[in-house]
Amino acid sequence: MRNLILVLVFTCAIGIYGIYSKTEPAGITETKSTTTPVAQALSIKDSTEAQKVYHAINLEGKLNYEPFEMAYNGYLQLPIRNKDIITVIDFSLPSTDKRMFVIDLKNKKLLFNSIVSHGKNSGEKYATSFSNKNGSYQSSLGFFVTENTYQGGNGFSLVLNGLEKGINDQAKPRAVVIHGADYCSQSVINATGRLGRSYGCPALPRELAKPIINTIKDGTMLFIYAQNKTYFATSRVLKASQSMLAQKDNDDESIHQQVY
């Protein structure tokens, strides 16, 4: 009898232990967030202005963040007359992709997303070589400001003024302008596997040239990007942007230390 009682007690103990030590199935672990509301608020507060604008315009999956960030940080420091619109061309993408982005910063909208041609000596499907020299027939990188329109040999065209000495400041003497071209079309892509190429101009489809030019003319900023180490190392605008951001980070850290 005594042995029977001991067996019953032992069995009950095992059952109770099993109830209170029940584990999740293999591979599933319940994780509780350790982020407090204050930390979450600080994380949002500490996100950069470029990140906030990028997300507000819903550019994810359309325009890569790095070229936008560089363009926006340059925009913040350059003396651009018309601050409502910026244009970004991402030459890290193939010419078969829509790699020109016209962005309305005032109303937080992407206005145009178009294919755009690069210079004939910059590369075939991808633009990989860039120059500021007359007769190079290559595209130039960096920051530009748009100027006046005119009717020229390529039709309705837009003058570009390169803002970076030694990088793109020969754009006007080289007649590097935005214009429409028959070789910049989906039909050319379908036939050849890439866009036709220019003498260095960012050429647009005929049907989009006029509306885009009329949107970005008269003092808006254009940034032409590529993953180019030489440009990254020599651009004074990018270096000034980095210094500006570093100073802002130091100021923010000083404020946090004072608060906490």
Rank of each mutant, 00 (worst) to 15 (best):
N73I: 01
N73E: 09
Y75M: 05
Q77M: 15
Q77I: 15
L78E: 04
P79F: 02
R81C: 13
R81P: 12
K83V: 05
I85F: 09
T87Q: 04
I89P: 02
F91C: 01
F91R: 04
S92T: 13
S92W: 05
P94I: 07
P94L: 09
P94N: 10
S95N: 07
T96C: 09
D97P: 00
K98A: 13
R99W: 04
V102A: 06
I103A: 04
I103C: 05
D104W: 03
K109E: 11
K109C: 03
K109L: 07
L110M: 08
N113H: 08
N113F: 01
I115Q: 15
I115M: 15
V116R: 07
G119I: 01
N121Q: 15
G123N: 11
E124K: 14
E124Q: 14
Y126G: 07
Y126R: 00
A127V: 11
A127K: 00
T128F: 12
T128A: 12
F130S: 05
S131M: 01
S136H: 11
S136W: 11
S136L: 11
S139Y: 10
S140G: 00
G142M: 08
F144W: 10
F144L: 09
T146D: 08
E147Q: 14
N148S: 12
N148W: 08
N148M: 03
Q151M: 13
G152R: 03
N154V: 08
F156M: 09
S157Q: 03
L158D: 09
L160K: 00
L160Y: 03
N161I: 11
G162H: 07
G162D: 04
E164D: 12
G166Y: 07
I167N: 01
N168Q: 07
V177P: 04
I178S: 06
H179A: 00
A181W: 13
D182G: 02
C184Y: 01
S185I: 14
Q186P: 04
I189R: 04
N190Q: 15
N190T: 15
N190Y: 08
N190P: 15
R194L: 10
L195A: 01
G196S: 13
R197L: 06
R197E: 11
R197K: 15
G200N: 12
C201M: 04
P202H: 04
P202N: 06
P205I: 08
P205R: 06
P205G: 08
